[in-house]
Write a protein that binds this DNA or RNA. Structure first.
Length: 521
DNA sequence: GCCAACGTTGGC
DNA sequence: GCCAACGTTGGC
């Protein structure tokens, strides 16, 4: 049966609502009024025109629309409802005669034929239904159903037919006009404008007493993102390997990203911008880790291949230089690495070493940021062990080696299927505690060889699986709030169900166990 | 909210 | 004018 033609917006808009007519305040195109709440001059959220004489009564209104906009919105909503229930009958989706049988809705319906009939097969859902964030759906641009074919986006799309455009650019003539208008107004009347206009006293100083350097810093619209002192700022040569370098024309790139070499991006600026969040923001940490990891993987692969090519030997050492250390410095570091490998390898075979581990306790603190840090050194033997590790744990190992672990925690040599972290410092309350991360990322904790029972509150306070390095760090931080139960080193004093970790001297279980006489201790 | 893409700025 | 790269836009 042919569908009735869908109602047009103009049909839906006529006749105008009588109710709205009666409520219509005096419309004026006024400039933004002073912020006086008693004047009741309100800006319409739809057309952005200012109206005076608006009465809210007791209603709490956060968004207000003028009568025309309300009518438009109601008509639009009605039309959308129509598209959702009946469909426009014209678009490609409405032309499909049968359900696809594969979409989520069809699958659910296959399992449960009683499933609500109002849910349409996703492939048959009218294309004129506007999704949130797509635009107002009302303005002329939103109502255009086809690309103009003449704007620069359309032209470029035509030119790039062989090489598809990376992003799905929207035809200029189909970009929501209202969205644009609102954004423009926000810019004009919003805080941004004020912040641009406002000038620091230093900049306003015309006496010439302010040093040029300072004035230059504040007068620049572009913020100086260089401290000029950190390792990254002192690096004058692009690495030529990172994604931003690859983008540069001098490295044969297309100049699309136009960003500074990753290893030349000021470290202090990054810290200043993000420092308060560094320990809290998992997304920031995630981003940093992902960036570092992606590059490190690339360098790791290249370093391995290069070394194998150079040595022609399967026992070649794999040197991993931190990303902040540019390619040109690799030779120098290689010498250091060789020395370390030779002297330390027998003591800790196949173990990823960090520079801090090669320094005496006091020296660690003295090693500043500029100290080149060798992220990982391992022989092919350890490389093989790493590769034999569960895939997920292997990823995890890489991530753990990327982040600074809490003081004196380190990853243990790979033995068995678990990834293990140990507290090395004898001064720590949980010295020698070992966190075992099992394949599947479940974990358990051992202290002096005793397993912390699964009933311990520590497990309850953390996810059963450690899926991010942040969770590992949080676990460590929590763990360090405990100390070994007094019963741990003294089996005779230990309850059968000793919690191993306690807040006080003894866990609650051991507190219930009477201590034996001194002779038994 | 993220990030690719790109307009634009500012140093040279 | 060229070029590096900052800051914003807009699709996802």
């Amino acid at each position: 049966m042919p569908l009735p033609p869908p109602p047009t917006l103009s049909q839906l808009l006529s006749p105008p609502s009588l109710l709205l007519e009666s409520l219509q305040p005096e419309a004026e195109s006024l400039p933004p009024p002073p912020l006086d709440t008693d004047t009741m001059v309100v800006c319409c959220e739809g057309c952005r025109v200012w109206f005076s004489g608006v009465i809210f009564g007791r209603q709490k209104v956060t968004r207000w629309y003028c009568s025309n906009c309300r009518a438009e919105r109601r008509a639009f909503a009605k039309q959308q409802r129509y598209y959702k229930t009946v469909g426009c009958g014209v678009c490609a989706a409405c032309q499909i005669p049968e359900d696809c049988g594969f979409c989520t809705i069809c699958m659910i319906r296959a399992r449960n034929p009683q499933f609500g009939s109002m849910w349409k097969c996703l492939k048959r859902r009218c294309l004129r239904i506007l999704k949130k964030g797509q635009g107002c759906g009302i303005c002329q641009a939103c109502r255009n159903t086809e690309d103009c074919g003449t704007c620069w986006i359309c032209v470029r799309r035509r030119m790039n037919t062989a090489k598809k455009m990376k992003r799905q650019w929207k035809c200029v003539k189909r970009r929501c006009l209202r969205k644009k208008k609102i954004q423009t107004e926000k810019k004009i009347f919003g805080l941004k404008k004020l912040t641009v206009k406002w000038k620091r006293p230093l900049e306003r100083d015309t006496s010439g007493t302010v040093p040029l350097v300072q004035r230059k810093h504040f007068s620049s619209r572009r913020r100086n993102r260089k401290c000029g002192e950190c390792e990254a700022c002192l690096q004058k040569v692009d690495c030529g390997r990172c994604d931003f370098c690859h983008d540069k024309p001098k490295f044969g790139g297309r100049n699309l990203k136009r960003q500074k070499c990753r290893w030349r991006q000021c470290l202090r600026y990054a810290m200043e911008k993000n420092f308060p969040l560094v320990s809290q923001s998992s997304s920031y940490m995630k981003r940093i880790r992902e960036e570092r990891e992606a590059l490190k993987k690339l360098e790791q692969r290249e370093a391995l291949v290069e070394q194998r090519d150079a040595d022609g030997s399967s026992s070649a050492l794999c040197f991993l230089v931190p990303p902040s250390t540019p390619v040109k410095q690799e030779v120098a570091h290689s010498n250091i690495t060789l020395g370390l490998e030779t002297t330390l390898a027998p003591k800790v075979p196949h173990f990823p070493l960090k520079m801090e581990e090669c320094l005496a306790e006091g020296e660690v603190a003295e090693a500043d940021e500029s100290t080149p840090v060798i992220m990982e050194i391992f022989s092919l033997g350890s490389y093989q062990q790493v590769s034999q590790l569960d895939g997920v744990l292997r990823e995890f190992l890489t991530e753990l080696n990327e982040i600074p672990l809490p003081a004196h925690w380190e990853v243990l040599p790979l033995e068995g299927p678990d990834l293990r972290l140990i507290q090395r410092s004898a001064l720590s309350t949980v010295a020698d505690a070992v966190i075992h991360i099992e394949p599947g990322l479940h974990f358990h904790i051992l202290l002096h060889g005793l397993i912390v029972p699964a009933t311990h509150e520590l497990y309850a306070n953390h996810p059963s699986r450690l899926t991010t390095v942040d969770e590992v760090v949080e676990l460590i931080c929590d763990l360090e709030a405990y100390r070994p139960c007094a019963g741990v080193p003294k089996a005779a004093c230990r309850a059968a169900n000793c919690a191993v970790l306690a807040y006080g001297d003894r866990c609650s279980q051991c507190c219930l166990t009477p201590w034996p006489s001194g002779d038994d201790l």
